[in-house]
């Protein structure tokens, strides 16, 4: 997350703690337990979050690997086998769709696209939102007022028509979907980060750093940003599922990924049309969508509890 060694995610890897501790003890110094290690310890005790982490890991891995190794492509029709129910014959384990395309590989592609949309759009959100919020919060005064009034104005724009207009104007480009969603959902995080920065600035350890002669830039780098990470991480894990759902909603409206490529939302939309005759076409992609969103929410909740300092 940031360049400083003690915040790298490597510190989170469970098995390594003991080895490092032994090393440190040999060197004579006692290794402290950072707040991150504490949080990871608490997260590991949270079964729902841990199970979600595993499920999500398996789905992600499958979404990456399956399209490479599966005998069918996502756009490969089989005119002899349309609307086939799930069967082991020919490895159509999720069945086929209206054009005889293998649903399993399409669902995996859907997961891939949905997860990608979720992660990339959230990253866009993060970059814009954190920068905007931290600058506003730390600068204070009229800069802060101006920046937050801009956020207020953007808030009042109708969100969905705005995205639809973007899509219509610039075409249905995958990249554009990421950017469009990211560009309209950074407002919340900007507000959160600004609030957090404002309160961090008043904390006594920042005052102590000022009294020690530390400059503004170093204070932001060493004290503000590391203390923001916790809340941002939680927010990110809760933003990804909402972005995935939003993409699904756009796809359902027919504004999503360009066919024949598809996302989970697109598959749900296709399946809904033939719900009466071929319910598996709705049920399978909808289950994947639900499971992914569930997992992210559980992880987010788990992280929030794990990082909550009130618990200690």
């Amino acid at each position: 997350m940031n360049g400083d060694a003690r915040h790298t995610w490597a510190n989170w890897v469970p098995g390594r703690g003991a080895a490092r501790k032994a090393e440190a003890l040999a060197a004579g110094a006692v290794q402290g337990r950072s707040l991150w290690q504490d949080a990871w310890g608490r997260l590991r005790c949270n079964r729902a979050a841990l199970a979600s982490l595993w499920v999500l890991g398996v789905i992600t891995l499958a979404a990456i690997v399956v399209p490479w190794v599966w005998p069918y492509g996502y756009a490969q029709p089989d005119w002899n086998l349309m609307y086939a129910a799930p069967t082991w014959a020919g490895w159509h384990i999720f069945g086929t769709d209206a054009l005889g395309r293998d649903l399993f590989v399409r669902v995996m592609w859907g997961c891939r696209i949905s997860l990608m949309v979720g992660v990339v759009a959230t990253l866009v959100t993060l970059v814009i939102g954190v920068t905007w919020g931290a600058v506003a919060g730390f600068a204070g005064g009229w800069v802060d007022s101006l920046m937050m009034r801009i956020v207020d104005i953007l808030y009042s724009l109708p969100f969905i028509p705005f995205v639809i207009v973007l899509m219509v104007l610039f075409g249905r480009d995958l990249f554009l979907i990421f950017v469009a969603i990211g560009a309209v959902s950074w407002l919340d995080i900007a507000r959160i980060v600004r609030g957090q920065t404002l309160s961090l600035r008043k904390r006594e350890f920042v005052e102590a750093a000022l009294a020690s002669g530390v400059g503004n830039a170093a204070i932001v780098r060493r004290h503000i940003v590391p203390n923001l990470i916790g809340i941002v991480v939680v927010y990110v894990t809760l933003t990804i599922p909402s972005v995935i759902l939003f993409e699904a909603f756009l796809s359902f409206l027919g504004l999503g990924v360009q066919a024949p490529l598809t996302s989970l939302g697109g598959l749900v939309s296709d399946g809904a049309a033939v719900l009466q005759s071929h319910p598996y076409m709705l049920i399978i992609p909808a289950s994947f969508l639900a499971v992914i969103v569930y997992c992210f929410n559980f992880i987010g909740d788990g992280l929030r509890d794990a990082l909550d300092p009130k618990d200690r």
Binding site: S34, L35, E204, F205, E207, A208, P226, N227
Partner: peptide
């Protein structure tokens, strides 16, 4: 400072 814990950045080592 007065409050020893509040005046130390929780994410830094001693």
């Amino acid at each position: 400072f007065q409050d020893p814990l509040a005046s130390l950045d929780p994410r830094m080592t001693v």
